[in-house]
Computed example of a mutant assay.
Amino acid sequence: MNRRELLKAAAALPLAQAAFSHAAFAQAAWPSRNITMIVPFPAGGQADLAARPVALALEKILGKPVIVDNRAGGGGGSVGNAAAARAEPDGYTLLMTLSSLAVLPEADRLFDRPVAYEVSQFAPVARVLADPTLLAVPASAPWKTLQDFVDDARKRPGQIPYGSSGPYGTLHVAMEMFAASAGIKLLHVPFRGAGPALTALLGGTVQAMASAPGTLKQQVDDGKMRVLANWGAERIPSFPNLPTFRELGYKDVEFYIWAGLFTQSALPAPIMTRLREAMAQAVKSPEVIKTFETAGSPVAYMDAPEFAKFVAADSARLIAAVKKIGKVG
């Protein structure tokens, strides 16, 4: 290096140091303003149930407001997921989403549509809830058992309407998985989220839906709905008398609706570490624990490393299910 190059490098060094110090300070000072937690569904569903108490707990821990933004649209949560994927990786836009996160890009490819986002754009932060899905029908429906439902569906192919949170969302995939195994055809009626689908079930617009225990328990307790089967491998404490699909002979029908917090994969490591620490505290909050347990969905926390492995395994199983289901409406 000649004298001119040496002087030039020396002159640039303070600027580089200043830039590095500024970036480090910006990360260390996080958060310095409001944080947005995108929920890609309307209020009333599993993701919303997970987001609101966690957001309140994070506010207390981080000292800044955490604002829940219900950004529905696109079917199954794709609009909100894509918005979070495109956000600046600075820790100020988080995503509380469901297991459909990995399914939706595959559905886009299945239909030769532009892919709204890729799962690789996200980094898992923490799993919050993980429940088996339940099959619910109105209390006024004629079906008292799953066999009653299947028998009727076989007599009237394509005539029993069921609601979902959108094409290839969690509730859609669960129902189509069951329908394929039972050899029945149902009428899919997509909504913008589980909340509107639940309202439609209560109002009689649809006659069945798959949903998480936390969004169904109060309605079942109030005598407004009946549950016929559980997509989990085992019975659950909040519905101890409800048989699983496996128990009823559907060995390949298993589905879980989990909710977890994600951020952009390019998020700086110091912010990710702080966020993980805050989430570990948040899920231990008495208010969070009480809210989830009252809803029949106890905390199912996983930290980032374990959650990343869980997401990879669950996504592979769901993607295989989507490919098996194929193009359905």
Results as ranks from 00 to 15, higher is better:
P14D: 03
A24K: 06
A29R: 07
P31L: 04
T36E: 12
M37N: 01
I38P: 02
I38S: 04
P40S: 09
V54G: 02
K60V: 01
I61E: 04
P65H: 07
N70C: 06
G77K: 02
V79G: 05
N81A: 09
A85P: 09
T93Q: 06
L101H: 02
D108P: 12
R109K: 15
F122M: 00
A123P: 02
A130I: 07
P132K: 14
L134W: 10
S140P: 04
T145M: 08
T145A: 07
T145H: 11
L146Y: 12
F149S: 06
F149Q: 04
D151F: 12
D152H: 14
D152I: 02
V173Q: 15
E176Y: 14
M177C: 13
A179I: 13
I184N: 09
L186P: 00
V189P: 01
R192Q: 08
G204K: 07
Q207P: 10
G214R: 10
G223V: 08
A229F: 02
A229T: 13
A229D: 07
R235E: 14
F239I: 00
K251I: 14
L261T: 01
L267D: 10
M272C: 02
L275E: 00
E277C: 01
K284L: 07
S285H: 05
P286T: 12
P286A: 04
P286K: 08
F292D: 03
F292C: 05
E293Q: 15
T294I: 08
V299W: 11
V299Q: 11
F307R: 04
F307P: 01
A316G: 02
A321W: 14
K324S: 15
G326S: 11
K327N: 13
